[in-house]
Design a protein around this nucleic acid. Structure first.
Lengths: 186, 186
DNA sequence: CCTACCGATCGGTAGG
DNA sequence: CCTACCGATCGGTAGG
């Protein structure tokens, strides 16, 4: 790499925030990750906090894009749920750092950005809930006692994936999606 | 409180580690939480790291106690799974701070303690897996395609509970246990 | 349990 | 993008 871009800095920040946490990452360590001295980062970014905002924003956008695509695809409740699940797995496995930072480090943000994340998560959860309701109505999914709980439990399973799943090994991404789908609908 | 005990310090550390994370908690803030100056904590504890070790050890012991009790209770697979679930919820809801620190901050530990936690978690997961296998054999649970995945997914749901569940509100602890049991076995 | 302090490290700025 | 630096804060110690 000949030059370092603002995006390079944000990506590296995502890597370290995901691995060590926001408070466990210093600007000097982040600089070292890029072959720079810490203070050089301030020509690309105004503050450490701004980096967290950018990484979290990126994570949020990825999840939002995924849910929009899944809902736009149409189909019955079961197939939309399947799309939500595979879309979520794609986000979480192709963008592990931004996704993990979004999921784990948002609590460090100031109240304003934290509330934005909370709202975004609620919309995301609502999409799962809507799809469970749709599937119950159209008969493609078993009726669950409470679609809100079904949504929370499904997201609990999905969000934990980066904590244990490693793409090598016997279980590939499609197997995993299928296993989750059948676990949450069976 | 007239005097501060070592246990008081560990408890307060659990509270702050759970809320702000290990790296987000300074010894001075921890002192303030107890009405002390930061340096006074060193008459109760050798280092900040030692506090994390103690909190995590406590969390691990609680989960271990819970699983031992559930397995000792006997019964068929379904009833042992029910006991594992209610036991886990009891730990996580009655000891939120130690449980959350155990679940979220163990990555900060040195390699040795981190490996201990990993081993303990594997044993814990294995207990869930064994119970799923037992239930499949004795007919009390539907056979799942893969008991290891069933264990991971169930623990994903359980471990996420402190992130969203608030004991006030319409859903009490028994409702929650029942909802989770039926979600993971239905 | 506090005061007084240590060296190290933190986020960030000035100036080039 | 680096050097040189700022005040603040960090984990921790000595001594009482």
């Amino acid at each position: 790499m000949t030059q370092t871009s603002r995006q390079d800095v944000i990506d590296a920040a995502g890597r370290l925030f995901a691995k060590r946490g926001y408070h466990g990452t210093s600007m000097r360590k982040l600089g070292k990750e890029l072959g720079l001295v810490g203070s050089s980062l301030y020509s690309h970014v105004g503050s450490k906090e701004e980096l967290l905002v950018e990484v979290v924003r990126h994570g949020a956008a990825l999840f939002e894009g995924s849910v929009d695509k899944a809902r736009a695809g149409g189909g019955d409740g079961a197939s939309q749920l399947r799309n939500l699940i595979t879309g979520h797995l794609d986000v979480v496995l192709d963008n592990r750092d931004a996704a993990s930072t979004y999921l784990n480090e948002a609590s460090v943000l100031d109240a304003d950005h934290r509330n934005q994340v909370r709202a975004e998560r609620n919309r995301y959860e609502q999409a799962f809930r809507d799809v469970y309701d749709l599937g119950a109505k159209d008969g493609s999914l078993p009726l669950s006692a409470d679609s809100k709980l079904a949504a929370i439990f499904t997201l609990s399973v999905l969000n934990a994936v980066p904590r244990w799943y490693r793409p090598l090994g016997p279980l590939d991404r499609n197997d995993l999606a299928e296993a989750i789908f059948s676990f949450v609908t069976r």
